[in-house]
Design a protein around this nucleic acid. Structure first.
Lengths: 110, 110
DNA sequence: TATATTTGGACAATTATTGTCCTAAAAAAT
DNA sequence: ATTTTTTAGGACAATAATTGTCCAAATATA
């Protein structure tokens, strides 16, 4: 049993909000979206558009790359499971990241 | 230098096709799509709809889960790099897969 | 050089995502 | 206990993304 709380994007941003004792209404208005949409994002029933992620990082003063990473890893894990696949895919993806990075590096010098 | 050829979905299915000496035209007609669309899928400039992946597996007699995995790992690696993130995301995703799997298992028995 | 294949863009049709509104349920405040 | 606020969740139109189709140019093959 090691901490499994608030690992997902929605849970996490809900925590950021509730720790500050802010209602959906207030944060939503800062984000310039509907409170119900923000609620859905917190419950992972809607996806956060990129711009919302940026704004959340700035409103709550958390690292943007970290927040993006939390969101993208959510998305990846959902995708893998919903395709009926498993973790091996991630290793394959890792290799491909290496390949793409080296290809890009090569292109820069050619 | 270890084999970096035909690792990506498009490259791979092109290899399957060319090894059999089939033109785009023929495979496309079996798939019931336009040859130019298939060409784009092979060059990774278009995404293969799910149904096409299924049909490709059956046409070329390759394992469907394998083919899905090749495609999804492509997609994941592109996503990670295009967000300016890196491999750490994948480890985070792996943890989340574990969590989701255990949550699902729990739900079944409750 | 003729024929077949592949590439790549333009465009409409379809499908998915997003934002907005509304009502009901749940929680908090008085 | 009742009022007020917050949260949950669905319906729907507006917008954006994806897909399928067609065409013409470039490349490769016969």
């Amino acid at each position: 049993m090691s901490g499994q709380t608030n690992v997902f994007f929605g849970e996490y941003i809900r925590e950021l909000r509730t720790l500050r004792k802010l209602p959906l209404r207030k944060v939503a208005s800062e984000l310039d979206i509907d409170p119900s949409t923000l609620g859905k994002i917190e419950r992972s029933t809607r996806r956060p558009p990129k711009e919302i992620i940026d704004k959340l990082a700035s409103i709550f003063n958390v690292d943007l790359a970290r927040l993006k990473s939390i969101y993208l890893s959510d998305k990846i894990s959902f995708e893998v499971l919903s395709e009926g696949l498993d973790k091996e895919v991630l290793e394959e993806a890792e290799q491909k990241i290496n390949i793409l990075k080296s290809r890009n590096a090569y292109e820069k010098n050619s």
